[in-house]
Write a protein that binds this DNA or RNA. Structure first.
Lengths: 129, 129
DNA sequence: CGGCTATCTGAACACTCCCTCAACCAGCGC
DNA sequence: GCGCTGGTTGAGGGAGTGTTCAGATAGCCG
């Protein structure tokens, strides 16, 4: 029986007074189930990771705040990095499902997705409270 | 007039047919306003960054899925890192406003906050669609 | 086509992050 | 006090990330 299992056993003893090996195994199984059902797709985590970077966060926020799509040349001046970095960041946002891209001649228009809008709204709403 | 401003000027010309310097300045001011109003707190971005890491994401998800608080010794076995790393990750989650901590004797209990619950719910909901 | 446009892509490099290891702190029992 | 517990904290190092630079791509116009 591993080290962490010992800790868990003492934890159960503390809780219900006594504990046998079967109890420990049962609790471990419960926790495994919990972990399994709690394993949301990686997509969700990727979206969070994308919004965790300052440049991408700002871009996503601007896209979400603006009504309608914006062109790269409009996004460039509001973030303080090279236009190459903007391009990288926007590509990452699209990959993460947080933005959409539309080509029109030489211009590329980006817009925020519902996912991005909702995530930012929730984050804001809670911050207010 | 900077390089990116030139691009923006041509963009406006493309849109409305003609464009003078004042038009460019006006559009730049609009974008600055947009950026300013779109600059949500850093708290929000920190929350996203916290959920962007696999270990923290898993812990947050388990805390959110479980009804009620969990002890560190129960979280240890479900993530595949040292218990020290778990401690670090939990501290980060608390700092980001995604979890709460309660001390009871030798045991420490963690629970998810409403912010964490809502963010994960939104991320999941969208993934379904 | 050839030149100019807006944007993208790949490589390189500095920087940050996340993990492990070790030492440490606080609570409990003797 | 001492020993043991569960958990935290700080330092260090390897892996990963973000930015920039240079070169590439695709669309428009003469």
């Amino acid at each position: 029986m591993s080290d962490t299992d010992q800790r868990l056993r003492r934890r159960i003893e503390d809780e219900v007074g006594e504990c046998c090996d079967a109890d420990v195994r049962e609790r471990l199984a419960e926790l495994d189930d919990l972990a399994a059902s709690a394993t949301g797709d990686d997509d969700a985590r990727d979206a969070f990771a994308a919004l965790g970077n300052d440049t991408r966060y700002r871009l996503a926020r601007i896209l979400s705040t603006a009504d309608g799509e914006l062109c790269v040349c409009e996004l460039d001046p509001v973030v303080d990095v090279s236009s190459s970095a903007v391009s990288h960041a926007l590509a990452d946002l699209v990959d993460a499902g947080l933005a959409t891209r539309r080509k029109d001649g030489n211009w590329r228009y980006y817009d925020s997705t519902v996912l991005a809008d909702d995530l930012l709204a929730v984050a804001d709403g809670e911050a207010e409270a």
